[in-house]
């Protein structure tokens, strides 16, 4: 595949999506540089997941174009790994088999796939849980398996749809820090969807704000100039963090209110 190194990793040009008569998102233009961590925030039901599905190639947009490293996207996005909001593990496979699957589908030899999956499970802190089935794991552990399942394939782009939304606060901060540590290793391009502004600022280089649906669009785009590496719990207490938070919240608040008014 021809790839343009200078081209943005993700480029959305005038992208809209409809479900029947319902317009989910309208006229979205968004760019993410290679290696950039972009968080997308917005009120519930603003079409953030719709956007990720478009970038993943799971559902082509009704209008507009998606370019991945300069190439127009047709079909599934083979450069992207997707961490879903809901449980996406295969319940009939053990943790190890779940992590191995992507490699097997890429015709990696079974023995090698098993070895590499073992390493990745250890990397996400689940050594010793290889033979557990998803139902035997806690919510946080399932997310770790899902993360290993996606990262083992070394995608250039990571799409994350409120991945930690269902976790308790402590587990969540732990997972956020681990995500940052893993991301620091090879700086993938990340699109991270969340409705939690604090999480967005703590993790991302840039925070993009979506308006309330229907016909959501981008209403704000903020750089987050906080030093890395960050600790998500500590960074929240810094003056700079609070300043950015106030700035974005004043905008996001209106959208949240509008979403509630509906």
């Amino acid at each position: 595949m021809r790839e343009d190194a200078s081209a943005p990793a993700i480029q959305l040009l005038g992208v809209s999506q409809r479900f029947g008569d319902y317009v989910a998102i309208q006229g979205v233009n968004l760019e993410a540089r290679a290696g950039e961590f972009v968080a997308i925030v917005g009120p519930t039901g603003c079409g953030k997941s719709t956007l990720l599905n478009i970038v993943a190639g799971l559902r082509p947009p009704a209008e507009g174009e998606v370019r991945i490293f300069g190439e127009a996207l047709t079909g599934l996005n083979r450069q992207a790994g997707y961490l879903f909001q809901a449980d996406s593990l295969f319940p009939w496979k053990t943790a190890l088999e779940n992590v191995m699957l992507g490699l097997l589908l890429r015709r990696v030899h079974e023995r090698e796939a098993r070895e590499r999956a073992r390493i990745w499970l250890a990397k996400v802190g689940l050594a010793g849980f290889e033979d557990h089935y998803p139902h035997q794991l806690s919510g946080g552990m399932k997310k770790r398996v899902a993360l290993a399942q996606v990262l083992i394939l070394r995608p250039k782009i990571l799409l994350m749809d409120e991945p930690f939304g269902a976790l308790d606060v402590q587990t969540r901060q732990l997972m956020e820090n681990e995500l940052l540590a893993l991301w620091q290793e090879d700086r993938k391009t990340v699109l991270f969807v969340t409705h939690d502004l604090e999480e967005a600022i703590a993790l991302a280089d840039r925070v993009v704000v979506f308006s309330a649906g229907p016909a959501s669009r981008i209403v704000g785009d903020f750089q987050v100039e906080l030093p890395r590496p960050r600790d998500v719990a500590e960074v929240r207490l810094t003056e700079d963090f609070l300043k950015i938070h106030r700035e974005i919240w004043s905008l996001l608040r209106e959208e949240v209110m509008r979403a509630h008014a509906r």
């Binding site: 993943a56 599934l76 992207a80 997707y82 996406s88 589908l105 890429r106 394939l153």
Partner: peptide
């Protein structure tokens, strides 16, 4: 559908 989408994203 999520598991199905996941399998497709993983290359199945």
């Amino acid at each position: 559908p999520v598991v199905l989408a996941n399998a497709r994203m993983l290359g199945a």
